[in-house]
Every structure is written in structure tokens, then in C-alpha cells.
Computed example of a mutant assay.
Amino acid sequence: MKYNLKINEELQPILDVYTNQPAPPEGMPLQEVFRGALQQMASQIKVSSTDEVKVEDKFFTNSDGLETQIRVFTPTAGEAQKPLLYWIHGGGTMSGLPEQEDPVLYNLALELGCVVTSINYRLTPENPFPKPLNDCYEGLLHVVKNAAEFNINAEKIVVGGGSAGGLLTTSVCIKARNENGPKILLQLMQYPMLDDRDDSDSNKEITSVGVWDSWMNHYGFQCYLKGVPESDYNKAVPNRMEDLSNLPKAFIAVGTMDCLRDEGIEYAQKLSASGVQVELHILPGMVHVFDGIAPEISMSKDFWKAKTNALKRAFEA
């Protein structure tokens, strides 16, 4: 399928500013570049508790004996147990931290009246598959096991995330299915990483936007799959998996100017062919993480409405 490969006119000037940054030191590994940038951003936008939403960090010990952070956003209105949005941050699997998405998660908790949690999973390449996935899944088990402490209704769970968070979102849902884990109502994936192979049209077309281009995605998957035998890629990479049946309903959003576009569309088709109900959004002229770069443009506002409406429908089911 051919797309109009033009960046949205509202987005273009904001993207120009975003990508006009000093070059990193020569030879610096890509994960260090992204980690530094995301840590700086997180320090600038980190939020604190208000009268409307309590923000706190809780911890659990993972199966490798490591204390692991879960950032929690709890609306203060009402005493009844609330639905849970279990969020997984992006960063290419090799970077990122919960605080980088504080304003978004705060606003989701406030608007939806749900508890939002964000897991600080281990990063690659130091901790390749399955360690990030294990952290995410074990974090979900911990929250559900301690539903009273988190003030959540364990029958009302959505798992969501963007980019690498989208990869880990659907992987958590697959693991929950395979291990008879928590019932998940919806898997919400924004511009998800879903395929390590570089053979899609969008991988070949989107190479120099400057946000998350195909070579960056290739590097991210190299980090995620470091030391993993190729024979096991079908356990780690969603688009390589054969059995996608009996998974939660899915919400998938991709931009036409994102190198991950075609992988997301293909995964939506595979889920649908496996009997999973899918809501797919293909957003014209949008790049990777467009809503984070330019939250005030009309397309980002429309996307926010579509996303929150999907979450409301899931929680009300």
C-alpha cells in the first residue's frame, strides 16, 4: 500500500525545532544518547501529588531479587476500587523511565478516574529479553495481588504503552494468556515496536525523520535480542508469533510517517485474523511519538479523544 509521505503541516515546524539539537559526542552508544535525553526531560516534567491525584512510588522485589519501582497515580475522588491502567514506558527497550510520561499519566488518571501505574523495567542491552518482559509481567502480578493496597478493581485491567512499551504491552498480554494470568480487557499500543526484521516499506521509507528512524529501531531490537538464539525470536517478537488467538481486544495507532507503521498494521491484521477485536488508527502525516512532541496540534488532540474513549469503553464493559 502506498502512503502520502508528507509530514503534517501543523507538526512540521514543531518537529524542526525538536530535531534541531546539538549532535551527541562522537562514538557515544545510542542507548546513552537516549537515556540522557529522556532523563533530562523527565527531570523537567516530573509531577507531584495534588488535591486531585496522588503520585507516589512503590516497590516490589522481582524474581531476580531486585527492588523494582512502580510509579502510581491515584485519583483522590471516591473511595471505591478503581480500574487499573497498567502502563509501560517507551524508549526503544534501551532507555526510558516512568517519570518521562508523568503529565500524560497524571491526566489519564484524572480524566478516566482510574489508577495508573508505570513500571521501571530493566533496560537493554545490559538486560535483554526476557528480563524487561519479566519485570513488566511480574509488576502486573504484584499490583493485582495487592489490589487492596493499590485500591484497584482486579477485574478492570488495561495494559498499554508506546513504542517499546507497545512491544512489552502485547508481550505481557501473551504471557498472561499462556500462564493463565490476570484477565486483561484491552491492550493499548501506540506506534508499537513489533518486528525486528527490516523488510517493510515503512522501514525502508522512514530513515531520516530524526525521531525514531529505521536504523534506530534496528539498533533497539539488536539490544532487546542480544544473546537470544534466532530460533527463539518467535517467543520475543510479536509479529513472528504464530498463535495470537484468545488475546485481549486491541487498540493500535500508527502514523504514516513512522518507520513502525507497516509493522503495526500487519500486527492488527494478524490479531484480527486470529479472532481478536482490533481498533486500528492510521494517522496521516504523523511521526513516531507525535503526541509527545506536539500535544497541542489538532491531530494529537483527536488522538487523545480516541484513546481515552477506547479506555472508557474497556473499563465500562
Rank of each mutant, 00 (worst) to 15 (best):
M1V: 11
E10V: 09
L11A: 09
P13C: 12
L15H: 05
D16S: 14
D16L: 10
P22N: 06
P25S: 07
M28W: 04
Q31L: 07
V33C: 07
V33Q: 09
V33S: 05
F34S: 12
A37F: 11
L38R: 01
M41R: 15
Q44E: 15
Q44M: 15
Q44F: 14
V47I: 12
V47M: 15
E52C: 03
K54T: 13
E56D: 08
E56C: 00
D64K: 06
G65S: 00
L66T: 06
E67T: 12
T68P: 06
I70P: 01
F73H: 00
P75I: 02
P75H: 01
G78W: 09
L85Q: 03
L85R: 00
W87Y: 15
H89P: 06
M94A: 14
L97C: 09
P98L: 12
E99N: 08
E101Y: 11
D102Q: 03
V104A: 08
L110S: 08
C114A: 14
V116I: 06
I119G: 05
Y121G: 09
T124G: 10
T124H: 10
N127A: 15
K131P: 01
D135W: 14
C136W: 10
H142I: 07
V144W: 00
N146M: 10
A147D: 02
N153Y: 04
A154Q: 08
K156E: 05
I157R: 02
I157P: 01
G162S: 12
S163C: 13
A164K: 04
G165H: 09
G166Y: 06
L167M: 13
T169E: 07
S171A: 14
V172A: 08
C173M: 11
A176N: 06
N180R: 03
N180C: 10
P182W: 07
I184N: 03
I184C: 03
M189V: 05
Q190E: 13
Q190N: 11
M193P: 00
L194A: 09
D201Y: 09
S202A: 05
N203G: 00
K204L: 11
K204E: 12
I206Y: 03
V211H: 06
W212G: 02
S214P: 01
W215H: 12
W215P: 00
H218W: 07
G220M: 12
V228K: 04
P229A: 12
P229Y: 08
S231D: 10
S231V: 09
K235M: 13
A236E: 10
A236S: 08
V237R: 05
M241W: 02
S245K: 11
A253H: 00
V254K: 00
V254C: 08
G255I: 12
L260T: 01
L260P: 00
I265V: 15
E266R: 14
A268F: 11
K270A: 14
A273V: 04
V276D: 01
V278Q: 04
H281R: 09
I282S: 02
I282P: 01
L283P: 00
L283C: 03
P284R: 07
M286A: 04
E296F: 14
S300I: 09
K301N: 01
F303W: 14
W304E: 12
A306M: 14
N309E: 13
A310R: 02
R313Q: 08
E316W: 00
A317N: 10
A317R: 00
